[in-house]
Design a protein around this nucleic acid. Structure first.
Length: 114
DNA sequence: GAGATGACGCACT
DNA sequence: CAGTGCGCCATCT
């Protein structure tokens, strides 16, 4: 619970905050960017602590664009509302044109690396 | 210190 | 092609 002990989390938050508006990414994409392709679930877990922070966790969904974490937000459809607020269409907890709104940090930040 | 959990992703059947 | 189960790694109890 100590923010100082957070190491991997901080990285996740940092990447999540880099997500531009109207765009979304997947846990695996962030994990991959961090070099933890096998730690996709760790990213999602990290989002748990992202609540209440400046981290747009609502822009992070699973690999199919499903708002798997929506259940974690305050309201029942808060996550969906936030996405629609950015112009992203969401249907039944699933993002429409997900690949169109997909934002891959490994590709978008490839030149920002280092 | 050890065990169980999880907002995922992939391999196998 | 579709459905189910397992593995991964860090955190939490």
């Amino acid at each position: 619970m100590k923010p100082e002990t957070l190491g991997f989390f901080e990285k996740v938050y940092d990447v999540a905050r880099l997500i531009p508006e109207g765009r979304v990414t997947s846990y695996g994409a962030i994990a991959k960017y961090l070099g933890a392709v096998r730690s996709a679930r760790i990213v999602g877990y990290a989002m748990n602590g992202s609540f209440g922070k400046d981290v747009p966790a609502h822009r992070v969904v699973n690999r199919v664009g499903l708002l798997s974490g929506k259940h974690h937000f305050e309201g029942t459809n808060l996550m969906q509302q936030l996405l629609e607020n950015e112009g992203i269409k969401v249907k039944d907890n699933q993002i429409q044109n997900f690949e169109k709104h997909f934002w891959d940090p490994t590709k978008e930040l490839e030149e920002f690396e280092g």
